[in-house]
């Protein structure tokens, strides 16, 4: 997964940034500064009916940024496959963030429909990045079906609650050979850093930026957190002592009054 430059490799494409930025729910005017401050190389977008013909988000995306279309709005495999094909027509690239979400209350992905869509899309040459509820068996099946990454949720979409599924994500990180990208729920840079320390290959965030008081500044904070977490992971964090303490200063040679 990690090469000499510690690049993130997805479907044969290498990225130096491990922070994937969403573009939803904030002004297009801020996309450019958010991307620059985040040093993001991948930005997600959704597909919707165009009834106005007016504003074009593509005008706000800097050169060289990889567009990662999502299939949001899809409630089953068939809809997601259709959306992915439309996305490829538009983006000219094979990347797709596969989201199949029939549940309206918690926006829980349907792992079974996601797996069905992954099988079809991977055969059509898509670089499939499925969003899923973290489950080791499903993650293995997704990889067998041709998924390029696995994107487990940290918490329900848009909640900023953080790593509610931490232990389940750790299992995926430990057992799955494709990049594990934590997607959804990450609300604070500290949570992004924690995911990266755990060994996540990348973190994706949107709402945490969109609902921040200063979007570009929060994007920068996330960039730093993701980098810090990655470096900590590579540095191999030190052990934890559950009881007692271990002095970090020498125990001998202490000067005494008497």
């Amino acid at each position: 997964m990690a090469n000499e430059k510690d690049e993130l490799v997805i479907g044969g494409h290498a990225f130096t940034s491990r922070f994937i930025l969403g573009s939803g729910k904030y002004s297009y005017d801020l996309i450019d500064s958010a991307i620059n401050n985040a040093k993001a190389q991948i930005i997600t977008m959704a597909l919707r009916r165009n009834n106005t013909g007016k504003e074009n988000i593509l005008n706000y995306i800097p050169e060289g940024i990889t567009i990662l279309p999502n299939t949001s709005g899809s409630t089953n495999a068939e809809e997601a496959i259709r959306t992915a094909r439309i996305a490829r027509e538009l983006s000219g690239s094979d990347f797709v963030k596969l989201e199949v979400v029939p549940d309206k209350k918690y926006l829980m992905p349907d792992n079974y429909e996601t797996l069905k869509a992954t099988e079809v899309l991977a055969k059509e040459g898509f670089i499939v990045m499925p969003y899923m509820l973290p489950d080791l068996n499903v993650a293995r099946q997704l990889v067998d079906a041709g998924a390029a990454t696995v994107m487990p949720l940290g918490a329900p979409i848009g909640t900023n609650k953080g790593l509610s599924t931490k232990d389940l994500i750790q299992i995926l990180i430990d057992e799955i050979d494709v990049p594990i990208i934590v997607d959804a729920g990450i609300g604070r840079p500290s949570q992004a850093a924690e995911a990266m320390e755990m060994g996540a290959a990348a973190v994706m965030a949107n709402t945490s930026m969109a609902t921040a008081g200063n979007i570009p500044l929060m994007a920068e904070a996330f960039k730093l957190a993701v980098e810090a977490g990655r470096k900590a992971y590579l540095a191999k964090p030190g052990r934890v002592i559950e009881h007692g303490a271990v002095a970090s200063s020498p125990l001998t040679g202490v000067s005494a009054v008497k």
Partner: peptide
């Protein structure tokens, strides 16, 4: 069925057609 951009000039709209116009928008 997706109409490829290269075919926009030659593809005509017929009676009873159902057209969907879809664009990228902001999304996470």
């Amino acid at each position: 069925t997706i109409v490829h951009r290269a075919d926009f000039d030659t593809t005509k709209i017929s009676e009873n057609d159902k057209l969907e116009l879809i664009s990228f928008v902001g999304g996470g």
